[in-house]
């Protein structure tokens, strides 16, 4: 069990090491005309990849060779990415909801994929409605009003005020976007 945990802990470093090795080989195949006595465009990425591979290899070996010592061997520093949970000793550990994450990520990917098909308004209305449902909000009048109002507000602000041409979608969905644009006076 402990060995399995240790192996799982090394996985990200092994993946990164493999990826870095592949990219190093890719960098070696750049189509360039070499100038005598000058560093080529492959030098900088190769230098970074060497450092990345060395760091990953160090961590990989350290984790594999480490005995039952569960203490983190690396120095612990205070950082900008430290979370409230890490910084506040009294904070209760956060419970995880992986299914919410998967559904949330899935509908986000679907939203981006359908943006060009449904158009900004329809896609955003559906997305915000579903996202709030995933976020375990169940007051239907608020759900519908906020997703409808939010989509219209975003469309108005970004298309009419900030002049960004958001996707209007393909037929027959584009008819909805065009009608709304006419109502809002967007050309």
């Amino acid at each position: 069990m402990r060995a399995a945990t240790r192996l799982a802990g090394t996985a990200p470093y092994a993946v990164l090491l493999g990826l870095a090795a592949y990219l190093f080989q890719e960098a070696g195949q750049l189509e360039i005309t070499r100038i005598e006595g000058r560093l080529g465009p492959d030098f900088w990425p190769k230098a970074i990849l060497v450092l990345l591979m060395a760091t990953c290899a160090y961590e990989l070996l350290r984790r594999l060779l480490r005995g039952s010592d569960a203490r983190p061997a690396e120095p612990v520093t205070l950082g900008e990415d430290a979370t409230v949970d890490e910084l506040e000793p009294d904070a209760a550990p956060a419970r995880r909801y992986p299914h919410l994450l998967w559904i949330g990520a899935g509908i986000t990917v679907a939203y981006v994929a359908l943006l060009d098909v449904l158009g900004f308004f329809l896609a955003t209305f559906l997305y915000t409605l579903l996202f709030m449902l995933v976020g375990r909000y169940r007051r239907w009048p608020v759900l519908i009003a906020s997703s409808l109002g939010g989509s219209l507000l975003f469309m108005f602000v970004f298309m009419k005020v900030v002049y960004i041409s958001l996707p209007i979608g393909r037929e027959p969905f584009s008819a909805v976007s065009v009608a709304l644009m006419q109502l809002m006076g967007i050309r």
Binding site: I48, L52, T55, E74, A82
Partner: peptide
């Protein structure tokens, strides 16, 4: 930055890459 120096270096190299 961060809680691990090794991870901070890896993160930096990924960003540079």
């Amino acid at each position: 930055a961060g809680t691990s120096l090794v991870n901070a270096f890896i993160s930096l190299f990924v960003g540079l890459l």
